[in-house]
């Protein structure tokens, strides 16, 4: 444990919570009228945490963000969706990052796709309906676009983050 990392985690958690709230005011679902369509701004934080602090810290930040977002008005059903989506996305992103084949962009796109798949999984669990799989192709198309956008944002953040945090990249 490192005080710098813990502090960075706290800041990133607060940032992720704020982003997941702000995201509600971006009416992406008017352009694509499907449940679960969102920009995935909070995923920028998960990505940044993964690259700066490692997968363990990213998982803790993700868990805290999901729990806090539920407390701040997401509700229990929302929690199941964000946990399923978030952790499947993190799992895929951590695995894909390890191969070093893709840049942040590729990792972000595959993470966004996994997030959608995870949410559909939560929907199937909650509503006991395999029909929800029919939404997945559309959500995957959307995730290819939103994944590139969040990847662009994460790349910008990672380039701009002070070197004091960046040093952790080589260590982990």
């Amino acid at each position: 444990m490192d005080a710098r990392k813990i502090t960075a985690s706290a800041v990133l958690t607060a940032l992720a919570l704020a982003l997941s709230y702000i995201e509600r005011f971006i009416p992406l679902n008017l352009a694509v009228p499907l449940p679960g369509v969102r920009l995935g701004l909070a995923n920028v934080v998960t990505l940044a945490a993964l690259y700066l602090l490692g997968s363990g810290y990213a998982a803790v930040i993700l868990l805290l963000r999901c729990l806090l977002a539920a407390l701040f008005g997401g509700g229990a059903a929302g929690l199941l969706f964000s946990l399923c989506g978030g952790f499947l996305a993190l799992l895929v992103m951590a695995a894909v990052k390890r191969t070093a084949f893709f840049s942040v962009f590729g990792v972000s796109v595959l993470g966004a796709a996994a997030h959608q798949a995870g949410q559909i999984l939560a929907g199937i669990l909650l509503m006991r309906s395999g029909y929800l799989v029919g939404y997945l192709p559309f959500l995957l198309l959307v995730s290819a676009v939103t994944g590139l956008l969040t990847g662009l944002m994460a790349a910008g953040v990672l380039r701009a983050v002070p070197a004091i945090l960046k040093r952790e990249v080589e260590q982990s």
């Binding site: 070093a100 590729g106 799989v133 990249v169």
Partner: peptide
């Protein structure tokens, strides 16, 4: 570090992979 944060051709593969997956699921389901 810079390379990790820059778009590279391999990333297009990630996009194509997601689109292909969407196509396959749509074809099977619909």
């Amino acid at each position: 570090t810079k390379r990790v944060y820059a778009f590279r051709p391999a990333d297009l593969l990630a996009v194509l992979l997601v689109l292909a997956l969407a196509g396959v699921i749509a074809a099977v389901f619909f």
